[in-house]
Write a protein that binds this DNA or RNA. Structure first.
Lengths: 219, 219
DNA sequence: TAGATTGTTAATCGATTAACAATC
DNA sequence: TAGATTGTTAATCGATTAACAATC
């Protein structure tokens, strides 16, 4: 139960990352006209432990659930969206307009998660002044001016591994507080800056190993 | 130290995901003509604990390091690449040729990680028989035939959240053993099937919260 | 009332970090 | 030899899961 006049409730990163799964599941159930839902039900739907679900929801839920009936689904969805900050929009810039950069620029779904990419940057002359999904592509020269003027706090890095650290340094110089890094490198940043890695090489390592183990077992 | 005639060395998922970072760092140093490298050096370069680095390398390295000098960088790189299976190629199919699917199809870098996307599938008539980066796009009808014929073990899901579970079920039906899931949903799969999630909604939750916390502190 | 479910405290598990002997 | 570094055992830390009283 979350008291009204509280500050931000502490939550671990790993728990935080589970919340969008709850939200997705609850919205699905909501569409099926389900009105109440219990932790054991959610746990079953998402293959989680039911105590874990209850603990996660205790952080998020303003008024908690009721024994026997569980949580009111509409209220719980609202609490999750509020906790995840989907109501207030965070603006971001994207650096590196390659295939992946273009894909992220084109993606319309970020609105739902409270993210707005306001502009993209690249050094390639051929890409400049193009528009993708109504987002302009500027030269890196203009990064600082735009970020400071619009008080941008999120930088998305979709440049190659070799350039990622330099771009990261520039973004921080421009006042960015959180970096979404798609380059397969470790970025060194000051203590108060957050780097969220989306490292496909790491994911592929997990996939490849699972296959190796599975195939070994069948021998 | 890894004895020659061993089976696959056990490793935790979280340690496995660190290995590509080591590899990237070592290759960078190799380019700088560094010949030997120590765990404390790597730990410093990647902002990790040095004991953790040594334990990770102990799993991967065939002959270990030497006190005082550390590891021979060329050998360690070879050991890592072998451990990660970058020498033998895993074939994959991709389902869902939207913006993200196209970006992944276009990406040339997967070769380096031992992944080859052999074909893509969609249900949209307009996308069929197109070719992206030499990869054909087929109708879902042809999924099973192709997967079974080529013995495909990896399925990449880049369809929308609502369709992801159905696509996942089909892939498993086709003999896929590991699923790389870009849809922001939890997929239910049999025990022996691995799902590796690339959930951008989870990442955004982390970014958004960091901003909320940082901004709260400045008030 | 009976029992499903909540919220929370205690126990377990796994990963990280500290301590330390061995060695090049 | 002296000391940096290795590999490993022990201690710590945090997250997950089990146990249980409270309650609708």
């Amino acid at each position: 139960m979350l008291d009204q006049n509280s500050r931000l409730r502490p939550i671990s990163k790993i728990a935080l990352q589970r919340l969008p799964y709850y939200l997705n599941y609850l919205k699905k159930k909501q569409k099926e006209a389900v009105k109440n839902i219990s932790a054991p039900m959610i746990a079953n739907g998402l293959s989680l432990n039911e105590v874990q679900v209850r603990k996660d929801l205790a952080i998020v839920s303003a008024n908690g659930g009721k024994p026997k009936t569980g949580y009111v689904i509409d209220i719980l969805i609202g609490d999750l969206e509020k906790f995840l900050g989907y109501d207030n929009v965070n603006q971001a810039v994207l650096v590196g307009v390659g295939q992946l950069g273009k894909a992220l620029l084109s993606y319309k779904g970020f609105d739902d998660y409270g993210l707005e990419i306001v502009a993209a940057f690249d050094t390639d002359q051929n890409k400049l002044d193009l528009t993708i999904n109504d987002k302009c592509i500027f030269h890196m020269d203009k990064l600082k001016d735009l970020c400071e003027r619009l008080k941008i706090h999120i930088g998305i890095i979709t440049v190659s591994a070799v350039n990622a650290q330099a771009v990261c340094d520039q973004l921080i110089e421009c006042g960015v507080l959180a970096v979404w890094n798609f380059a397969p490198v470790h970025l060194k940043v000051p203590e108060h800056i957050l780097v969220q890695d989306e490292n496909m090489a790491s994911s592929l390592a997990v996939l490849s190993r699972h296959l190796a183990e599975t195939i070994e077992k069948t021998n």
